[in-house]
Computed example of a mutant assay.
Amino acid sequence: MKKFLLLLAAAALTASMAQADAKSGQKVYLKTLKAKFGMNGTKFAAEHTVAEWEDLFANDAAGFIKEYSAKFPSAVPVLTNPEMKDKLQEVGDFAKEYGSDSGNVPSCG
């Protein structure tokens, strides 16, 4: 029983940490990328499925940077800025949390 409770507590902690990263990513998206991409967070996150977002944000977001640099050339300086490396992973957590097939809807417009 003790192992079960520890496992349950660990799962709850992991879920809350993932949610915190998604919230941080939502803030980063709204502050730095929304104007560049010209779409609100809901529309952005719905552009891909969760699995597609996972692929795009693998390898330090290489696929994301490539795809969104091609779509939005004015965003290249932001997307390739070394200071954005960790922040892009948070944006990835946001996108994965609210991907088109996740069933979740962000509270941002």
Rank of each mutant, 00 (worst) to 15 (best):
L30C: 12
N81R: 08
Q89T: 04
Q89M: 11
G109C: 08
K87M: 08
V105H: 03
K87Y: 05
E67A: 15
E97L: 02
A20F: 08
K3G: 00
M84T: 02
F72G: 02
H48F: 13
T32H: 12
A20L: 08
D86I: 03
Y98P: 06
Q26G: 14
A46Y: 09
S74R: 12
V76Y: 03
F72W: 08
A12H: 07
L8D: 10
V50P: 00
T42H: 08
E90D: 15
V76T: 15
S24G: 11
L88Y: 09
K66E: 15
F72T: 03
Y68S: 04
A11P: 10
E83V: 09
A10V: 11
D86C: 00
K85R: 14
L13M: 13
C108M: 12
D21G: 01
E97V: 01
A9Y: 01
A15E: 07
Q19S: 10
K36G: 00
A12Y: 06
M1Q: 12
D21H: 07
E52L: 05
A22H: 06
V105A: 10
L88Q: 09
V105P: 01
S16A: 12
K23T: 08
A75K: 10
M39C: 10
K96S: 09
S24R: 11
N81F: 03
K23G: 00
A20E: 06
L13P: 00
G63Y: 08
Q26A: 14
F64R: 02
T80M: 15
K66P: 00
S107L: 10
A35G: 03
S69K: 06
T14H: 07
K27N: 02
K23V: 07
E47S: 13
A95K: 04
L30G: 12
T42M: 06
E67Q: 14
E47Y: 02
N40W: 02
G109W: 03
T42R: 13
